[in-house]
Nucleic acid binder design. Structure first.
Lengths: 242, 242
DNA sequence: TTATACGATTTGTCTTACAAATATAATTAT
DNA sequence: ATAATTATATTTGTAAGACAAATCGTATAA
């Protein structure tokens, strides 16, 4: 029955119990708000000790799938999609490959948001962006202050009205910041050159597209705005294939 | 020192220990491959029992952050970004709002991938897509067989060369499938009408853009290909605001 | 009937115990 | 003396028991 033991990298009882719990919820069509049996019942039903059962429950509790109030027992709840991810997005912990992947992910997502942005944008959004851009124009070259850089892009995410996307960007943001700093010798010269030749797409330029309702201009502008990232990722991917 | 107790929704010792462990790894600059102290040391250092410590470790083990081999102790490992998410993307468990958000996320991402696709695409990719498209043209109207529908889009993700994006799409795919089925009364008529008036962008059309190297055509095609989703999401968001 | 107090139940935490696995030390054989 | 084997110790995985804290329900008293 239990020939899982063969596997080398040690599938523990806790792993199995966790999976069985998920299957149990699924096959019984349990969803947010539904109560689940108490610990002792679950433990005996699954034939494991309370400690093992609790370790498995603890995992699901971390994901927000289970809520528990003392004495009243446990309830299923709507889990947080990204709570697990949030804990581990730590540049130190992730390989370069993963960091590059995340950066690529972010760029694709942000450019792909264009349709949604133009579907939802209104005057208040424009005003907010205008304020951010004004406060950002202090440094000479291509660089904004990190805070307005952050605010501008966050606002764009906000305009989509998609809270999952917003949460996602907040989590992966440190990766962009980290890579930009770590590879500044790569990015700074490129952006300076773009600024010198007038090809750099600034936040102000992007805002102008939004104001004019020029969707294609905005999309193109965003792609150019991320130009340095594209060439960076292309280069890094190739250098990894060697 | 520990005034966390004030919070209502019960922050347990396990929650605190989990966070302390993450902080410990971070502040000691520990990363994949580094060994960490044994359970008893950690437990006494944190002033908690082994059971609490183990519940916290179990969570991090689930995310792949910690690997452990009996007797040899525990090592840090590169965590899986999306392993936590994978367990909970279950349409039953998620609210409609979250499901819609995920669908919007997917659409934005897939359209935003255009640049990357055109950066990486080669003859072999085109051939693969051609094969998929050929096998898909069996039904009349706008509908492909689900399997080729899946294969085509998966191939697009694959062309990006970004394994994080690929993993992500594999996880959230059930949501699109689920919504398409659940709201088929909405989607089918729209697609039929588009097909009737010749405005439906098929996989074959998209492939043609790829073959011709027509990036803007492809991007536009993708947007149209997802047209029904956009109007659906727009409609659903508005109806929620009431 | 309402308010208080008591008891029962369930989760949170700690402790102890033991099995399984394996690294290290000790012992034996060549 | 070196290699092979055995024994020992250590560490994680699992189980079980105990108790505190919280709270729900009930019983008792005003």
């Amino acid at each position: 029955m239990n020939d899982l033991r063969i596997v080398n990298h040690q599938i523990t009882l806790v792993d199995q119990v966790e999976e069985k719990l998920l299957n149990y919820f699924k096959s019984n069509n349990l969803g947010p708000g539904d109560p689940i049996p108490k610990e002792l019942e679950l433990a005996t039903a699954l034939g494991v000790g309370r400690s093992v059962l609790r370790e498995a429950l603890s995992r699901l509790r971390m994901l927000g799938l289970i809520e528990t109030r003392t004495r009243r027992g446990m309830l299923l709840a709507e889990p947080s999609l990204l709570r697990g991810m949030k804990r581990i997005v730590e540049p130190n912990m992730l390989s370069d490959k993963t960091l590059f992947n995340i950066l690529g992910f972010r760029v694709a997502l942000e450019i792909g948001m264009t349709e949604m942005i133009f579907q939802n944008i209104n005057k208040a959004h424009i005003d907010d962006l205008e304020d951010i851009v004004k406060r950002g124009i202090v440094k000479k070259y291509s660089e904004y202050t990190p805070v307005t850089e952050y605010e501008f892009h966050t606002k764009l995410y906000e305009i989509t009205g998609n809270s999952t996307i917003m949460e996602f960007q907040a989590i992966i943001r440190p990766v962009s910041v980290f890579l930009k700093e770590r590879f500044k010798d790569y990015f700074l010269p490129i952006n300076k050159e773009l600024a010198r030749t007038g090809k750099l797409v600034s936040h102000k330029d992007l805002l102008d597209f939004l104001r004019k309702g020029d969707k294609e201009g905005f999309r193109k502008g965003m792609i150019d705005h991320f130009g340095a990232y594209y060439t960076f990722l292309k280069h890094e991917n190739h250098s990894e294939e060697d």
